[in-house]
Structure formats: structure tokens, C-alpha cells
Design a protein around this nucleic acid. Sequence first.
DNA 1: GATAATAAAATTGTTAACAATATTTTATCA
DNA 2: TGATAAAATATTGTTAACAATTTTATTATC
Lengths: 239, 239
Amino acid sequence: MATQNIKPDQARFSEDDVLRQIEQAVLDHRLTPGTKLKEVQLATLFGVKRGLIRKVLTRLAHSRLVDQTPNRGATVAKPSVKEGQDLFATRRVIESAILETLISRAEEQHVEQLGRMLDREQKAYLRGDTERALALSVDFHRQLASMAGNSVLEEYLNDIIRRTPLVILTHLGVDEHNRCRNQEHEAIVDAIARRDVKTAKKVMNQHLLHIESKIKHKPEKPPADLAELLRPRSVEQPS
Amino acid sequence: MATQNIKPDQARFSEDDVLRQIEQAVLDHRLTPGTKLKEVQLATLFGVKRGLIRKVLTRLAHSRLVDQTPNRGATVAKPSVKEGQDLFATRRVIESAILETLISRAEEQHVEQLGRMLDREQKAYLRGDTERALALSVDFHRQLASMAGNSVLEEYLNDIIRRTPLVILTHLGVDEHNRCRNQEHEAIVDAIARRDVKTAKKVMNQHLLHIESKIKHKPEKPPADLAELLRPRSVEQPS
DNA sequence: GATAATAAAATTGTTAACAATATTTTATCA
DNA sequence: TGATAAAATATTGTTAACAATTTTATTATC
């Protein structure tokens, strides 16, 4: 009981925990492109030594979520327009391959599980819980990759998912219209159930293109307060 | 003049240099799956401090080239059969997408440059310089990705290229027949020149499947002497 | 000679201290 | 008041020392 009441900022995080927390903060739009990530501040926030933070930042930089400049520290990455376009184009390739692979091996239970996920996503939208809906929306794509059963495709999709918010926030800003639309998810699941590869891929492409086609603008957004945004949350086990 | 004659084992390497050297050693088959990478030894070999080696190993582990186990150090990764199959299947997806993109934007000079590369590759094979031929063969694939102009696809292909030797060495062993065949490269360039996407992709798939279909066996190979294999080479600028 | 126990050596993991660099604040001057 | 220079502070980069763990070598026992 006592251990469960430990405040997050007093907990002792592992390297992977810290990495996950920062990745999640990017995904949630809590950390926006250009935000400065100061080592000492992060170490204090997470209750760890600076060395651990340096390791995490190295890994994040290697994954291109973070830009590291010698003697100037780390900032959340700001992808260029070209990089954004390339990322979305590649996402279309990867998601299509996932759908092909999934449909070639999908079972009844897979379709049912996807249906349940969509129910939850729809309910979250209806009650106005946009944060939860966004998370479920992202999970939908992850689940497709997991069900497809190709670990390398899954790995790349997860990489893309982590980087997608950077593109959106850098070039499009936070806007309801720059997110997944639930009915398109439904159409994809329907096509999977019918084993209709062509339709599934077509809808997925449209799904992604509706965001991608807008990557031209460059609205600027002021940096937010890092401590507030990145306040550690309890480490949760994946469902 | 004096600086140019510095012996490699006395040079001061940057973090990126060391990373590149180790990656290259994997690509050359000098470092084989299961090989133990000891920090102090590497630090001595490269003339750097142990801290830098730890950073490099972190990055290599994040890229799955290296397995890191707490308190037991780092070894060159040994992908499972499934992982090997997934990697090759994903490679087919990525290479096909690269060909599509390239053909949609290819110019005369691209085709000429690829032709010159193939000449060099063929000559290396004919004079029995297998190491050089292998390097040129790998460069061929990299060049396709570079010409296609999608940086994310290129990044993923480079990741795949770095990991491919691990699969081959783990499951197939060093064998002339587990490498690219020059005539298939020629057929691919020919199809690109004719803007024949279908044929280009078909040949590329065959090209990769001729290796992939063999990923079932597990020949074992004894670990080699690390210091000999990983002796630093001079840092070369990419051509 | 084989096995187990112990000791020694090697390796990995962590840390605080300090150096180097960048940023912010303060003082000075026109 | 604004611009510039100097001083102070903050941040990043590096390092050696030490702790913790694993591996290897040596010794003891049967």
C-alpha cells in the first residue's frame, strides 16, 4: 500500500522508464518540437543521476526524436518539410505492408479485438475525452502491426508513430483535423474482416494522405514550461 | 604529412567514427554474431576512453546490432530465424518502395551512374576481389535508396543493410551463394532505365528471395580473435 | 584426474568532481 | 536608455575512481 502511494517525482526510474516517458510526452503533444531538454533538470524531475539522462538522450537522438548539438544540449526534433513528407510516404508503404501481412493471417479473434478497440475509441470521442481517444487511435495502428506478426515492420511502424507528432506539430499545429478519423479505422477493420487487401490499403492511404497533404505550412508555437509538461507519471504496465 | 602517417591504433576517434568502424566490421563479416565486445579492449583498440565506447555500445544496442545484457556486457547480435525472415520480408517491402520512388523520378545520369557502379562490381568479381565486390554490391543498394530521395526509406534500408549480415552469418554461414548476384543488379538497372516498375520489383524480390528462402539452418562458427578482426582502420571519407 | 571451493583478475556499472562551453546577469559607458 | 564588456551562473562534456558483478585461475579435496 505504501509503495503504491509513492509520488512519481520520488520514484526511481530505470533508463527504459525514462526513455518511455519522454517518448510518451512527445506522443501526447506535451513535448513540442524545439523544446530544450536540460540534463540536470530532467535528472531532478525523474529522480535519477545525470549519467542516466545522458544515455537516454543519446538513444533518443539516435532515433531522431531529439536533436543533439555539441555544447548546446538536446532539443525535441523539428523535422523539415521534406522529412515530414518522406515520413508520411514511408508510413503509407509500411502500413500497407502490415495490412497485406495481417490479412494473409488474420483470424476471427483478431477482427473482434480490433472491433472492441474501435468501440472504445468511439466512446472516448463521444464523451469528449480527446486525450484518451488519441491514445486509442495510436494503439489501433500499433495493434495492426502487432497482429501482422512481422517484428521488423512493427519496429519501424513504432518508430514512425513516435516521430509523426513532431511532423504534425512542427508543420500543422494542434488541430482536430490533423488526427485519425474513427470512421476510417472502421472501414479498415471492415476490409480486413472481408480480407479485402485492396480496399484496406486504399482506405489506409486516404487516411494518411488527409494529413500528409497539408504538410506545407509552418505555424510557430511558443515553447511551454518543461517541468510542468514533463512531470513524471507513474510507470504503467502496457495493457 | 606527419598527421597522415599516424597509425590507426594511435589515432583519436570520435564517437561517430567508432560507431561506423564497428558497423563496417559487421558488414565485412569481420565481426560475427555472438562475438563479445569488451569495453576496455575496444577503448584500447580505438585509443579512446571507456565512456565513449559505452555510448557507442548503447547506440548499437538501440539499433539491434548488439545485444546488451546487464553485468555481462555486449555481444554482436544473433537474430532468431523468425527475425531473419521478418527482416528479409521487410527488405522486400522497402526495396520495392525505393524502386517505385526512384523510377518515378529517375534521370539519365542516375542510370549511367548505376551502370558505372555495376561495371566496377563486375570487375571486382572477375579479378577475385570478393571483399571489394561485396562492398560495391552493398553500395548498389544504398545508391538506389539515395537516388530515390526519400530520407526515411533510405534510413530504414541502411538499417536493414547493417543487420542483414547478422542474419546471414547466424543462419547461413559465409558462402558465395548467399550474396548478391551481379546479373540481377544488371536486370534491375535495365528495368529502371526502361521505367519498368513491375520488372524491377520482380527481379528485386527474386534477388532477395534467393537468400531468404534458405534461412532455416543454423551452422555454428567459432568466435574469432576480436583484436585482430577489429583492428581500427583509417577513417575514410565516403566517396 | 575430476570436482568443488576459494581467491584473484577482469569486466561492467555508477558516481562525483572537474573542465570546457554557453547563457544570463550585472556593471559601465556613451 | 541602449549598447557593450565583464562577471557570474548554468549547462554540457569528460574523467578517474570506486562499487558491483562476472569470469578466470588457483588451490584443496576426494
